[in-house]
Simulated scan of single mutants.
Amino acid sequence: MVLPMSIGLAFWSGVAAAGYAIAALFFLRFWRRTGDPLFASFAAAFLLLALVPAMSVLLDLPEEQQAWIYLLRLAAFVLIILALIRKNLR
């Protein structure tokens, strides 16, 4: 039997998703000002990070079936690492 997600956990997951989305908007604004692809990469990574808690709440899957969602988090960190390497190799 799958227990529904508690209201508190859903609330804090929403807060985390909103925080990541706000950070993505800030980096998107910096990218539009400067045109630096590093900021675009950070914006995309934070959008991916915002999807993780949002999908966890919206899909309401049991914990043992949520492992694939964390591949989004891995993709975000790989994107950040690649952007930093690209920036430093110039």
Rank of each mutant, 00 (worst) to 15 (best):
N88C: 08
F27C: 12
S6M: 05
L82F: 14
L59K: 10
W31A: 13
L47R: 02
E64F: 15
A67P: 06
L74T: 09
G19H: 03
A50W: 01
S41V: 07
M55T: 12
I7A: 05
I22E: 09
G19D: 03
G8S: 09
L9S: 08
P53D: 03
R90C: 00
A67W: 07
I80V: 14
T34Q: 11
R29A: 08
A24F: 01
R33M: 13
S56T: 11
A43S: 15
W12G: 00
L72W: 08
L82Q: 14
I7R: 10
L71I: 05
Y20T: 02
D60V: 02
V2R: 11
A50M: 06
F27K: 04
Y20M: 12
A24G: 03
A10S: 08
L38M: 13
L28N: 13
A54R: 00
L71Q: 10
A83D: 11
L47V: 07
A75S: 11
Y70I: 07
Y20G: 06
R86D: 15
A40Q: 15
L61C: 06
A43N: 05
F39T: 15
F77L: 10
L72F: 10
D36K: 04
L71Y: 07
L84T: 04
A83G: 12
A54M: 04
I85G: 04
S41C: 11
A54I: 01
A21Q: 05
Y20C: 11
F77K: 09
R32W: 14
P37Q: 13
F26E: 00
R29P: 05
P4A: 05
V78N: 07
I22S: 08
L51D: 08
L49M: 03
R32Q: 14
A44W: 06
L51V: 05
L72E: 09
D36F: 03
